[in-house]
Design a protein around this nucleic acid. Structure first.
Length: 591
RNA sequence: GGUCCGGUAGCUCAGCUGGAUAGAGCAUCAGCCUUCUAAGCUGAGGGUCAUUGGUUCGAAUCCAAUCCGGAUCACCA
């Protein structure tokens, strides 16, 4: 139990003893004491004044006195300033916390709670390579899954691949028209980029054809429909749905190129999935759902045979769930998949990591699932994250401002290499060790940069800022870890050693911060928010570095101080390592 | 227009279950490597927390209105 929680509980008990009244932990606030006052934790007394009809000073004196008297091993003194009761926590509490946990690499992890959760993330289209936006999604999804595991959930990572539809046919048509049989192998191109290039070619040709038709006097709207390449694409989609062998073969072939490329990227950035769903399989579930919904009266059929759901009573609109030609739309497939996930994994919660541009869509999905009476409908949760923008504005594929994921990863690794070489601290590393270090640092910088901000908010990706490895960055934390490990290699930590009874301010500050880690992990899990971890780790590293600059560990004043500081260092390193692991970031022993 | 989200230092962001003088990083300026890794540390300057009103002992935080920015409202996914 956290010290904050203990203090809350003790306060409730004391108030009961002192005044015979039942208070709950929500009836008053406990904070960390501001540095300018004496004490460690502060009970804010104002909210108790009204109910007890006593002055803040009277309550503070009674409560402070009672706490110190009743829990002398915990509280050593108190003072009251303007309605704030400041309590000092005994050094022995902090020191025993350190003795117990300095070597526990699982500190902060919760026991299994028996709940099963699925986290769906990444969800790429197979017509173009991954970009910066996908990276935020991938890092977020992966990290949230790990954070939930640390909170005791059994987690399944899943991915729905959007592998069919008109956009896929566009790349296929363009390949037929322009590739002349070229393949990723023949052109030495990564498969997903190769296919993406034909998607671009499609759009170029389409634009050309539309403007040609418009020059001949056709309206823009008609030209967009009549352009031969678009007509061919629509025909191809029909052929695909009819299972036409040539089309299916080409589709499989081009998708396999894309998957080869994706695999490389996923492996590189450390994304993995327990289950991959393919839209080409799940879209058929739509029909069944629509029939059931019609039978239940949840859906209605219009005269033209299209099927709708009326959500106007829920403040939304009428929404189509099946086209008049009987084909299923995006949302229908999602309902089917939601059900399939539940049936296959018996999950208690289903999390969707999807951009906030789809807030409306996800609201509709959940509503429909509820109206259909799907068993886990109320546990569908949209983890909605903000878009990634550039300092110049939004990324636009038409304007070529999309930041490619593979390029970015390469750039970050190259930057890590450059910095490392400039500093020249690891000249004895082998080529393999260096390559691994560059990757650890480059990816660490990138992941931290994308995870350090609140996922719900849109963020700006500043290329210059992202390759700065100083300050609030991944490498700063990695560096702090490497520094500690350097000491721990040279000095011997003796587990049962006497640590003395005194704590210097900076030593105590580290301990107070270390103690918060389990609370932060819980908070990050509750909020599904990796940035809580990132902010915490940065703060911990900062506090440790201040301590490190101020006090010597190897040449401490005496042996018990040295052992105390070695244990502080060890526990800090463990938390830096396990915390960064929750963000998908590794820490190097040297850098 | 309807719905939803956001506006905190020059820039990027914390803080938001109401609590003491609003915090970091970057950038700027001034210091600190003969002792454990300077990818570090110490200090300085920098704020009408969009605006106005309300709630109360107390508001960046809660409520309302206004202004500004964004997302979304397809027989696209």
């Amino acid at each position: 139990m956290s010290i904050l929680h203990i203090l809350q509980k003790n306060t409730v008990e004391s108030l009961q003893v002192l005044y015979g009244q039942d208070f709950s932990e929500q009836d008053f606030q406990v904070n960390q004491t501001k540095p300018e006052f004496e004490g460690d934790y502060t009970v804010v007394l104002f909210s108790l004044v009204k109910r007890l009809k006593l002055s803040p000073d009277a309550i503070g004196n009674a409560l402070g006195g009672h706490l110190v008297k009743t829990y002398p091993e915990l509280f050593t003194g108190f003072n009251i300033i303007k309605g704030f009761l400041n309590l000092s926590v005994a050094n022995s509490y902090w020191i025993s916390l350190l003795e117990k946990n300095h070597n526990d690499v699982c500190f902060g992890k919760q026991a299994m709670n028996g709940k099963r959760v699925m986290v769906e993330y990444s969800s790429p289209n197979t017509n173009k390579p991954l970009h910066l936006g996908h990276l935020r999604n991938n890092f977020l999804g992966w990290s949230v899954a790990e954070i939930l595991k640390a909170n005791g959930y059994e987690v399944f990572k899943s991915c729905i691949v959007n592998d069919r539809g008109i956009h896929i046919c566009k790349s296929m048509i363009a390949w037929q028209l322009f590739a002349d049989g070229a393949t990723p192998a023949s052109t030495h191109t990564k498969g997903d980029h190769f296919v993406g290039d034909y998607y671009v070619k499609f759009n170029d040709e389409y634009k050309k054809q539309v403007s040609e038709l418009m020059e001949k006097g056709m309206s823009k709207e008609n030209a967009e429909k009549e352009a031969p390449i678009m007509q061919a694409t629509q025909q191809m989609l029909l052929d695909w749905e009819a299972g036409e062998p040539d089309v299916m073969e080409l589709w499989k072939r081009m998708n396999s190129w894309v998957y080869e490329g994706f695999d490389v990227t996923y492996k590189n950035i450390g994304s993995d999935f327990d289950k991959t769903y393919y839209e080409s399989n799940t879209y058929l579930l739509g029909k069944k759902i629509v029939e059931e919904g019609l039978a239940k009266g949840v859906f209605v059929k219009d005269p033209d045979n299209s099927v709708w759901i009326d959500l106007t009573n829920d403040g939304l609109d009428r929404k189509i769930v099946q086209r008049k030609d009987g084909t299923s739309v995006y949302i229908t497939q999602d309902i089917g998949l939601a059900q399939q996930k539940y049936e296959e994994y018996k999950i208690d919660q289903s999390i969707y990591v999807i951009g906030d541009e789809q807030n409306y869509h996800m609201k509709v999905l959940k509503l429909i699932a509820e109206k259909l009476g799907l068993p886990n409908a109320e546990n569908i949760y949209h983890l909605s994250y903000g878009m990634v923008e550039l300092p110049t504005g939004k990324m636009k594929s038409r304007e070529g401002t999309v930041v490619d994921a593979d390029d970015l990863v390469d750039e970050m690794i190259a930057t890590a290499k450059q910095h490392t070489e400039d500093l020249g601290k690891v000249k004895d590393f082998t080529t393999e060790e260096l390559a691994s270090l560059y990757k650890t640092i480059g990816l660490g910088a990138m992941k931290f940069y994308l995870l350090r901000v609140d996922p719900k908010k849109k963020m700006i990706f500043n290329p210059q800022e992202s390759i700065d490895f100083h300050g609030f960055t991944g490498p700063f934390i990695q560096y702090t870890y490497a520094r500690i490990k350097s000491i721990l290699r040279k000095e011997t930590l003796q587990p049962g050693a006497s640590l003395g009874a005194d704590l210097l301010p900076l030593e105590k500050e580290i301990l107070i911060t270390l103690e918060q880690y389990p609370t932060i992990v819980m908070q990050a899990g509750r909020e599904q928010n990796p940035s809580a971890i990132a902010n915490y780790l940065f703060h911990l590293a900062q506090v440790f570095n201040s301590f490190y600059a101020e006090h010597s560990i190897a040449n401490a004043e005496n042996e018990s101080k040295k052992q105390l500081r070695l244990q502080l260092s060890s526990m800090t390193a463990n938390i830096l390592k396990s915390g960064t692991a929750l963000l998908g970031i590794q820490v190097p022993e040297r850098m």
